[in-house]
Amino acid sequence: MQRVNMIMAESPGLITICLLGYLLSAECTVFLDHENANKILNRPKRYNSGKLEEFVQGNLERECMEEKCSFEEAREVFENTERTTEFWKQYVDGDQCESNPCLNGGSCKDDINSYECWCPFGFEGKNCELDVTCNIKNGRCEQFCKNSADNKVVCSCTEGYRLAENQKSCEPAVPFPCGRVSVSQTSKLTRAETVFPDVDYVNSTEAETILDNITQSTQSFNDFTRVVGGEDAKPGQFPWQVVLNGKVDAFCGGSIVNEKWIVTAAHCVETGVKITVVAGEHNIEETEHTEQKRNVIRIIPHHNYNAAINKYNHDIALLELDEPLVLNSYVTPICIADKEYTNIFLKFGSGYVSGWGRVFHKGRSALVLQYLRVPLVDRATCLRSTKFTIYNNMFCAGFHEGGRDSCQGDSGGPHVTEVEGTSFLTGIISWGEECAMKGKYGIYTKVSRYVNWIKEKTKLT
């Protein structure tokens, strides 16, 4: 034993070699072989497995989906700052455009905790909710729209109204504003409101030439003092309507412009014939205590009207009353817009006519005020429907199939267009061939041609 100890002390290297040989010859039971080890760690190889990531292109799944990435790591994937920024906006807080917040056709661009709407022409605001041009839906104005110097929408209202708090709607500024039905039992019968379409306001006024200088022999019209197929109006439903009495009662109609003036057809009036105007009328054979009678003290036909040349060209006249009318729910003026808007309103496509005229061709006159909704007829169809001249200051309205029309005794009465609950004068009943005849239409004086003249002559002093 002493000898062994001496050998170990003198030859430590020998001992180490012996131990190493023993270990190498022993069977290893701690580690699995290569094949079995792979069965336990069965993990798919990654895209760049075996390579240094710093030297390969980034992978979106590896960089940002398996674990949260930084902007720089995302930049490695896209290799483009702009594309990385677009991805980053949604990656950080989701897609803010998912709810489609942009209105009126706006395009949404996502941002971090926010979004941006790219608005089409005519709109602005956070969600493109603000109209900035009158060309689109009248700028959301209830009545009139004008573009300011910086191309912003400025709404306005006709006389007797003021802008509401929203700067879009119009509200009454006087007790009985024009064009409004205020009798409670008839307010439910107000005709369907007309909503502004998209309009090209630059070209809204037709490029028409008034044929002022045409000389033409007097034409022989049949029954051209021209509501057939209409309905009984309720008291106060058309408070701007008046009836004219002269040699015979209810020979023509008219509309209240203001307390002192009536507008009617020029062919209705004769110099030297006494005319009485009755406002607030409903049943011409009954006294309903809503009527107001006034005498006409002055007749002003349009300066281009000449019955000797043509009885229905420039067929418009103004009547001055001896005493002002007292405005109330049964006696209310009709609204008159400017030339541009009167023309736009007419193009809405349908209007209402009213009167006490004959209820059928050569038949009896109506006792109760009649009204009828009539569609506008395109000019080409209008011209083809008659052998008589249709001037540019006239328009056609009615039904091709016949059966409904204005008729004798309705002449001078109103053709009105309702705009968001307020009625505007767009025409004056003038003439036609018979009444409600198939293929024939009622012919009306186009008020847009005469609004400046009306307003100039009827100013209240």
Rank of each mutant, 00 (worst) to 15 (best):
N5R: 08
M8W: 12
A9M: 06
A9T: 11
Y22G: 04
L23F: 14
L23C: 06
S25P: 07
A26Y: 04
A26K: 00
E27Q: 14
K39L: 11
R46W: 08
E53D: 13
F55S: 15
F55Q: 15
V56W: 02
L60P: 15
E67H: 15
F78G: 14
F78L: 14
T81L: 07
T81Y: 10
T84S: 09
T84A: 14
T85N: 08
F87T: 15
K89D: 13
Q90Y: 08
Y91G: 15
G94S: 11
S99W: 07
P101L: 05
P101N: 05
L103G: 13
G105M: 10
F123N: 04
G125E: 02
G125T: 02
N127L: 15
E129G: 09
C134H: 03
R140T: 06
A149K: 10
D150L: 10
V153F: 14
V153M: 15
T158W: 02
G160D: 10
R162T: 12
A164Q: 07
A164R: 08
C170M: 00
P172T: 06
P172E: 05
P177G: 03
G179Y: 00
R180G: 03
V183Q: 09
Q185A: 07
K188M: 11
L189I: 15
D198F: 07
V199I: 13
N203P: 07
S204Q: 04
A207L: 06
E208V: 09
N213Q: 09
T215E: 06
S220L: 12
R226D: 10
G230F: 13
D232G: 06
D232N: 14
Q237N: 06
V243E: 03
L244P: 01
L244E: 00
N245K: 02
D249Y: 01
C252D: 00
S255K: 01
N258G: 03
V263N: 01
T264D: 00
A265M: 02
E270Q: 08
T271P: 04
K274N: 02
I275G: 02
T276V: 06
A279K: 01
A279M: 01
G280A: 03
G280H: 01
E288K: 06
H289M: 14
H289K: 12
K293W: 11
R298T: 05
I300M: 07
H303Q: 12
N306I: 05
N306H: 10
I309P: 04
N310H: 10
H314I: 02
E323I: 06
L327G: 02
Y330V: 06
C335P: 02
A337T: 03
D338C: 06
Y341T: 15
Y341M: 15
K347G: 12
S350V: 08
Y352L: 10
V353Q: 04
G355P: 05
V359K: 11
V359R: 12
H361W: 06
H361G: 08
R364F: 07
A366R: 10
L369P: 15
R373G: 05
L376F: 11
D378Y: 03
R379V: 09
R379H: 10
A380W: 12
R384L: 06
R384E: 08
K387P: 07
F388L: 13
C396F: 02
A397W: 01
H400P: 14
E401A: 13
E401G: 10
E401L: 13
G409K: 11
G412I: 13
G413S: 15
V416P: 01
G421L: 04
T426P: 01
G427A: 02
G427K: 00
G427Q: 00
S430D: 02
E433D: 14
Y444C: 03
V447C: 03
Y450F: 04
V451W: 03
I454Y: 01
K459A: 09
